[in-house]
């Protein structure tokens, strides 16, 4: 991977320097130069490592996906709040096994993360493409079982899930 060395190094340095700018909040020459030197050093230390699952990660479409996820999170939060505050506690916990057709490793990670972030469903185990999800009742697990969440992620990663 000698050819991608300078590009990856520059990208890492810029990303680290942005984090430095946000976190330090001081913009005099001393802190800017110090931050730039530290970012260069950390980026240089990290050049030898193989690519993470975040290589070829469609950041722009993930950002577009997040408002949809946010609405789902709000909706299921209200559903869960109703369940908890109901005096008779009408919960019907179920375990759902779900086989996903997503191929990108980042897509699997994002699906597991979205499922757990949504209140009422938690990813218990992930084995390759097979998900074991605990849901507090059937309504909470509906986004997953109907494949709605997976379709959104298939759009994010530009994969087709029509082979089912």
């Amino acid at each position: 991977m000698k050819s991608s060395f300078p590009k990856q190094f520059i990208a890492n340095t810029l990303a680290l320097f942005c984090v430095w700018l946000v976190l330090s909040g001081k913009y005099d020459n001393f802190h800017l130069v110090l931050g730039f030197m530290v970012s260069c050093g950390v980026a240089w230390l990290n050049t030898g490592f193989p690519h993470s699952p975040f290589h070829h990660f469609p950041w722009a479409r993930v950002v577009l996906y997040s408002p949809w996820l946010f609405l789902r999170v709000v909706e299921s939060s209200l559903h869960l709040t109703k369940l908890i505050l109901n005096p008779s506690l009408p919960i019907k916990p179920i375990l759902i096994t779900y086989r996903s057709h997503l191929r990108h490793r980042g897509a699997i990670v994002l699906l597991g993360n979205s499922v757990t972030l949504t209140p009422g469903t938690i990813t218990v185990e992930v084995n390759g493409n097979a998900f074991l999800v605990h849901a507090i009742d059937e309504t909470a697990g509906k986004d997953l079982t109907t494949g709605r969440m997976e379709r959104q992620l298939a759009w994010v990663f530009q994969e087709d899930t029509n082979q089912r």
């Binding site: 709000v74 939060s77 757990t116 209140p119 938690i122 218990v124």
Partner: peptide, 15 residues
């Protein structure tokens, strides 16, 4: 149980 309780805990980090 622990599974349903962790659903309740996930309310804190979402909304």
């Amino acid at each position: 149980d622990v599974f349903t309780r962790s659903h309740a805990v996930s309310l804190t980090d979402s909304l």
